[in-house]
Computed example of a mutant assay.
Amino acid sequence: MGAAHTTTTAQSPPFRSRPRDGNSWKRILARWQLYALLVPPLVYLALFKYIPMYGVQIAFRQFLPSKGMTGSDWVGWRQFDRFFHSNDFWTVMNNTIGLSFYHLLANFPFPILLALSLHYVANKRFKKTVQMVTYAPHFISVVVLVGIVMQVLDPRVGIVNHVLERFGAEPVNFMGKAGLFQSIYVWSGVWQHVGFSCIIYLAALSGIDPALHEAAVVDGASKIRRMWHIDLPGIMPIAVILLILNVGNMLDTGFEKVLLMQNPLNQQTSEVIDTYVYKVVFQSVAVNYSYASAIGLFKSCVNLVLLVAVNQIARKLKTTSLW
């Protein structure tokens, strides 16, 4: 037996890697349909992401449309210094960071919880109904959403105040209280986007090996144990990637929704970078494009620093990272 085994092993041909075709263009032309799918996103990136970076120099100039981009006077860091030393700088930064952090903490766990809950629903009709009900608000426009929020929270005709009056409480002007603005903004966003955001987690859960659950059921594991030891580790790489991307957009709070919900009574806590730029720059007599570009560049740099920092932390913790 040993001799026969030795003979068979000796006669087996050595493994040879398949020789590579030196002509890469032939391989590309043979699969041109797949490469053609890359053209639209590459064109989009070039037109709307990379070519506009040429205009970043406006932030370092006193831009005048009559002189053009390169003909305008170079002023260096003057526009940034103006923003950093403005009276509203710390108020705007505190509101932006506080609102963004609150939004991240509230919006990150709920899609995961909803996906885990739907994953274990046995009744398919009930599951589809819940999915439809939770997905639908995502397609409501921001203007309609803010209108719904204002009607629901109206101190005279709002259903919330009618319920409070039933219990003997006084009507509350929710939109007029500065301390409630962030909570109204964040939780209305959770209601609108939680169903749509859980789609990617449902897709990740469907990719987990069913044999792991079968073995856990045989061992007597409950659903909570299976969620904790099988489902959560299975979707954790996706969750980490989404968390890193969300942190990379930390200062992008959403201009339209904040502006529509803003009023003089809650402006103390609702004034963020985007609305500040709109009011100071574009509602003034002379539009200052350089000042707006400087603030936008500063916001992008902060987002980039946060993205790199969180990605490095993820790498040090030996979890999934972007690079």
Rank of each mutant, 00 (worst) to 15 (best):
I224Y: 09
M227P: 00
W228E: 12
H229C: 15
H229P: 14
D231A: 12
L232I: 06
P233F: 02
G234Q: 00
I235K: 01
I235E: 01
M236G: 11
P237M: 07
P237F: 02
I238C: 02
A239N: 10
L243Q: 12
L243G: 14
L245H: 08
L245G: 07
N246R: 10
V247H: 09
N249V: 09
N249G: 15
T253P: 11
T253S: 11
F255L: 04
E256F: 10
K257P: 01
K257I: 01
V258F: 00
L259H: 15
L259Y: 15
L260W: 05
L260V: 03
M261G: 09
N263K: 02
L265D: 13
N266C: 06
Q267M: 15
Q268H: 10
Q268N: 08
S270E: 00
I273E: 01
D274H: 08
Y276C: 02
K279S: 14
K279L: 09
V280S: 13
V280I: 12
V281M: 10
F282C: 09
Q283S: 15
S284H: 08
S284W: 09
S284G: 09
V285F: 15
A292F: 06
A292R: 07
S293C: 12
L297Y: 00
F298G: 01
V302I: 11
V302W: 09
N303H: 12
L304Y: 05
L304E: 04
V305S: 03
L306T: 06
L307E: 05
A309R: 05
A309K: 03
A309N: 06
Q312D: 12
Q312R: 14
A314E: 03
R315W: 06
K316Q: 14
K316G: 13
K316F: 09
L317F: 13
L317W: 07
L317I: 12
